[in-house]
Design a protein around this nucleic acid. Structure first.
Lengths: 184, 184
DNA sequence: TGGCTCATGTAATCTGTTACATGATTCT
DNA sequence: AGAATCATGTAACAGATTACATGAGCCA
């Protein structure tokens, strides 16, 4: 009973919103799910194939011109399977913050380097925050479509967490630079 | 050039604080690093063996009685290797929030079930928050030891993030239950 | 014409978990 | 005496990434 792979559910979930190609699925993951999920082509395409064999999606070869391009659509069976998973309680949320690992062991390398790691972390956050804030505002207004509310709540989650990251970065940098001063 | 396994660095980092057995390493990960890292025996013991072969740690069989028990100690070479890694910029922080995945696709299953997922998430957070808050306070005072400051900052990170999680949970539950009311 | 984006896919490899196997010691 | 904790380790398997291979369409 292995860790129950979730790629199946991610793809079915995205296809429950709209029919997509493998390439578009990757883009959705890299934009809309970016805050809490990631995946590579090497797991997307094989999963699409297995989902088709299980009749949870259908593949339609809409090759415009001679170029290969397949649009995947969720089936009723696929929707049932997705709902079944959605009903089950969450098994586990997982995090691997390399940044915090380097911080935890920071004593071995010193404050200057550690502050730099925190700064890099903060830079990435500041880069994404404006987009996140705009997304939340935009999604709050667009409440005609029902999926928007769910999307908005994940964006809000991201916004709130990122703002907290930022506050923490300031405190952590401050704390470490004080230590440097006391040493001198 | 694969994803650069970090188990090596985690173990070296923990051993840079104090000599430990494999079993104790697991405990440290499950308590002090819990907020941002995890690992199983199946990866700890093999890593310890390979680190010994690379002369980054030494193994001393302190078998009290006839019971097998090995205490691992970091070598200078191990410390160099750890520092080398600590100096390099962070490659990637990774998250996999199954909870947010179920939320994002929540439209397919409805508000009630989704609220339950959020509630479960919140319950876990509320369970851990008191301990986190106490840790931060305790670590703030104990500033004799230098490693404590780094430990404290990770605990503070956890505390701040968990408090934000909680606030978000309240907002999200509210938002979804309003939708239920409007439907009726 | 050169570069970017669209588009699909596989093989090698990595990394880690799960489940199992085993047994001593300590606490109640 | 029995349960919980201390303690080590491996084999099978799962799940995913990376790197490679390939090529069409579009824009400047």
């Amino acid at each position: 009973m292995a860790n129950e792979k979730k790629m199946d559910q991610v793809i079915l979930g995205l296809l429950s919103h709209e029919s997509l190609t493998g390439y578009e699925i990757k883009k959705r993951i890299d934009t809309r799910l970016k805050l809490f999920w990631s995946a590579s082509y090497g797991s997307i395409y094989p999963t699409l194939n297995s989902l088709e064999k299980e009749k949870k999606v259908t593949k339609s070869g809409a090759s415009k011109g001679g170029r290969e391009k397949y649009i995947y659509t969720i089936t009723e069976q696929g929707r049932d399977s997705l709902r079944e998973w959605l009903e089950k309680p969450v098994v586990k949320d997982e995090f691997r913050y390399e940044t915090l690992l380097k911080l935890f062991f920071g004593n071995e390398i010193g404050e200057e380097v550690t502050i730099e790691h925190i700064q890099n972390f903060q830079d990435k956050i500041q880069e994404q925050l404006p987009f996140l804030r705009a997304s939340v505002e935009q999604l709050k207004e667009a409440d005609e479509e029902k999926t928007h509310q769910y999307y908005m709540l994940t964006a809000l989650f991201g916004k709130m967490i990122y703002e907290t990251y930022e506050q923490w970065c300031e405190i952590a940098k401050q704390s470490l630079s004080e230590t440097i001063c006391n040493e001198k």
